[in-house]
Simulated scan of single mutants.
Amino acid sequence: MTLFTDITFFEVCMALLTVGLAERALLAYAPIEMVGPNGWLIKGKVEE
Rank of each mutant, 00 (worst) to 15 (best):
T2G: 08
E48T: 06
M1S: 12
D6F: 14
E33D: 09
V35N: 01
E23T: 14
T2I: 10
K43P: 05
C13Y: 11
Y29K: 07
E47H: 01
G44A: 13
T5K: 10
A25F: 11
F10C: 10
C13M: 03
G44V: 06
P31E: 04
D6E: 15
D6A: 13
F10V: 11
V12F: 05
T5S: 12
L16R: 10
M34V: 08
L21V: 05
P31A: 05
F9D: 13
T8H: 11
M14R: 08
E47L: 07
A15V: 08
V46C: 06
Y29Q: 13
G36N: 01
W40A: 02
T8R: 10
L16G: 09
E33F: 02
K43V: 07
L27S: 08
T18R: 02
V19C: 11
K43R: 12
A30I: 12
L3Q: 15
M14G: 05
T18V: 12
L16Y: 08
I7K: 01
I7D: 09
E47D: 09
T8V: 02
A15R: 09
A30E: 06
I7T: 10
E33A: 03
E47Q: 07
E23G: 01
G44P: 08
A25G: 13
A30P: 12
V19Y: 00
V35Y: 03
L21R: 02
K45L: 07
V35M: 02
T8Y: 10
D6T: 15
G44T: 13
L21F: 02
G44Y: 14
L27E: 02
V46I: 12
